[in-house]
């Protein structure tokens, strides 16, 4: 056979990994022991970070990219993809994560933003990026910057699913409306959404985002994961919800089962039994001013 030319870091290759994670659970882990528990429980990927969002919320201060040594420790023990977070706009943290060989970079509002105006130009990277969004305009701006996966933001570290539901409904609701709009109305939609017209026109045609839409932020139970899936998420991120609960391993496993069998209430009932206390959480109405979801532009 002839020697073929091969390309890395193409949009298809980057989006491809997101396609492979569909129907799965991506779990936040802070050390190799948790990463092992996550993989044993059937996680499709882990998010390596120093503190889960619930602790970032309590501790306050500036939250930054994790120590490379800690990320490498998790990469050594895991056979599944390892993701890591960079601050919004902090392209050097992203360069470092890429050099470590992380499989996905999350440009995340959970960390303290490094740039109040600009997100990272994600097209420049070989490693794929996931970004959060609270609405369709935000999602499309991130996609136009090169994000290959969107996650609805929810409100990380709360254990309250209400914002995740709001953001998923907002994104999918606006997509539905776009498919009803006529061609003249799409110009106004692009203006309202502050999003590039070609992307708006594409979604009006296809009825879906050009990249997978995952759900994050506040999921704590198997039922929460199934709710996100029934509302149209392609997969779920569970952060504090697992390792801030009383008994992480069985809860992690139950959330994996629920994400696969999200329409089957009898299986959901079975896997929800006897899991111990979920994370205590903090309701959105008692949250005060620190809302991660407001970060990102």
């Amino acid at each position: 056979m002839n020697e073929q030319s091969t390309s890395t870091g193409t949009p298809l290759v980057k989006r491809g990994l997101a396609e492979m994670l569909k129907g799965g659970v991506i779990m936040d882990v802070v050390n190799p022991e948790q990463a092992k528990i996550a993989e044993d429980a059937g996680a499709v990927a882990v998010m390596a970070l120093e503190r889960v969002p619930a602790d970032i919320r309590v501790d306050g201060g500036v939250a930054r990219m994790s120590d490379p040594e800690m990320i490498e420790g998790i990469q050594e023990i895991c056979t599944i993809p390892v993701m890591a977070k960079a601050r919004i706009g902090h392209f050097v943290e992203a360069q470092i994560l890429e050099s470590l060989g992380v499989d996905y970079v999350d440009e995340s509002e959970v960390l303290t933003p490094a740039d109040e105006t600009h997100h990272i130009d994600k097209w420049k990277f070989t490693v794929p990026f996931v970004c959060g969004a609270t609405n369709l305009g935000e999602a499309l701006r991130r996609i136009s910057e090169g994000a290959c996966m969107i996650r609805s933001k929810g409100e990380a570290g709360t254990g309250d699913v209400v914002q995740a539901v709001r953001h998923l409904r907002t994104i999918n609701g606006d997509i539905k409306k776009l498919t009803q709009a006529d061609s003249a109305e799409l110009f106004e939609w692009a203006k309202q959404l502050q999003a590039p017209l070609p992307l708006v026109q594409e979604i009006a045609e296809t009825g879906k985002l050009p990249v997978p839409l995952f759900c994050a932020g506040g999921l704590a139970t198997p039922a929460d994961a199934a709710l996100a899936m029934q509302l149209g998420a392609d997969a779920v991120f569970v952060g504090s919800g697992i390792f801030k609960s009383a008994d992480p391993a069985p809860r992690a496993r139950a959330i994996v089962e629920a994400t696969t069998n999200y329409t089957d209430a009898s299986i959901l009932a079975k896997v929800s039994r006897g899991l111990g206390a979920p994370m205590t959480g903090i309701g959105m109405d008692e949250l005060g001013d620190l809302k991660f979801e407001d970060r990102g532009w």
């Binding site: 091969t6 390309s7 890395t8 491809g16 794929p128």
Partner: peptide
């Protein structure tokens, strides 16, 4: 290798 080594190509 890891994701950064993932690739696409034409094959006969």
């Amino acid at each position: 290798g890891r994701q950064v080594e993932s690739f696409e190509t034409d094959i006969e």
